[in-house]
Computed example of a mutant assay.
Amino acid sequence: MSEHPQLPHQSQPAPPPQPSSQPHGQTPPQPPPGAGLPPGYTPAALSPTEERNLGMVAHLVPAVLLPLSAGTLGFVGSLVIYLMYKDRGPFVRQHAANSLNVQIITAILLVASSVLMLVLIGFIAYPLVIIVATVIHIMGAVKANNGEWWQPPMTPQIVR
């Protein structure tokens, strides 16, 4: 019988190693950082309109998710936007960080409200925290859409 040609999924033998032209103990010169990477690996700067829109989205996503998920998914939206766009422009970074800060304080207050449910006051505090956080996010979305730098009220700057 005749030999079968080698199928593409079968591995080929590795070529023999080439002798190094570098003297023993020296490392070869390294390419500059980012050399050889596809263009998608370097974040491009955003236009002012894109920064405003993303700053607004950084507040709108949690504003929608907070009431729909009883306060559990707003944090995820803020975190994803912060991590994806924090290096793309100062305006979107500040608004995404503000959104994340609001979510951190909201999570702390929701945990405290959950504990206070043992003495019944938490049943009033829990929805109140969600309403206040949603209003703060809506205010932030309006400010971002107008291109205004803004620090949310009653919110310490944990993430910068």
Rank of each mutant, 00 (worst) to 15 (best):
V61Q: 02
V142T: 11
G74H: 09
V61L: 08
I108L: 13
I105D: 06
S78D: 09
F91V: 01
H59K: 11
Y82I: 01
T106Q: 14
A144S: 14
A96W: 02
V111I: 13
V64Y: 07
F91H: 09
L128T: 15
P153G: 13
G147I: 01
A96G: 13
A70L: 11
A133P: 08
D87L: 00
A125F: 06
P48T: 03
H59P: 01
A63T: 04
S47C: 03
V80F: 04
F75G: 06
L118A: 15
S47T: 15
L128V: 12
H95V: 00
L79W: 07
S99L: 00
L73M: 14
A70I: 00
G74P: 09
M117H: 10
V132N: 08
M56A: 15
I104Q: 11
V64Q: 07
Q103K: 09
L116N: 00
M139Y: 12
T72F: 10
I121P: 00
H137F: 08
T155V: 12
I108S: 14
L46H: 14
H137K: 04
L110N: 02
L68N: 06
F123A: 13
N145Q: 15
G77L: 00
G140N: 11
A97T: 10
P127C: 06
V132E: 09
T106M: 02
M154D: 08
L109T: 12
L118D: 03
N98Q: 11
L68M: 12
G74E: 13
A58W: 06
A107H: 06
P153Q: 07
G74D: 10
V76D: 00
R93C: 09
P152S: 10
N101Q: 12
L118F: 14
M56G: 08
L65R: 02
Y126P: 02
V57G: 08
V102P: 00
S78Y: 00
G89C: 11
P90R: 11
V111P: 01
H59T: 04
R93F: 05
Y126D: 12
E50S: 15
L83G: 11
I124G: 03
A107V: 06
L66W: 01
H95A: 02
F75S: 08
V135C: 06
W149S: 04
R52Y: 05
L109M: 13
E51L: 03
A141Q: 09
V135I: 14
F91N: 03
Y85F: 15
E148S: 10
N146C: 04
A144T: 11
V76L: 13
S99G: 15
Y126E: 09
G71H: 09
L46D: 15
L60A: 13
L54V: 05
S69Y: 01
V57D: 04
H59M: 02
P67Q: 06
N101V: 03
A144E: 05
N146H: 13
V142M: 06
I131S: 07
A96H: 04
H137W: 03
F75L: 13
N98R: 00
S78W: 00
H95D: 00
Y85N: 12
H59I: 01
P48D: 10
S113W: 08
V132K: 08
P152A: 12
I138A: 14
L109C: 15
S114R: 06
H95Q: 02
M84T: 15
V119C: 14
L118S: 14
L120P: 11
L60K: 08
G140W: 03
Y85T: 03
I136S: 07
P90D: 07
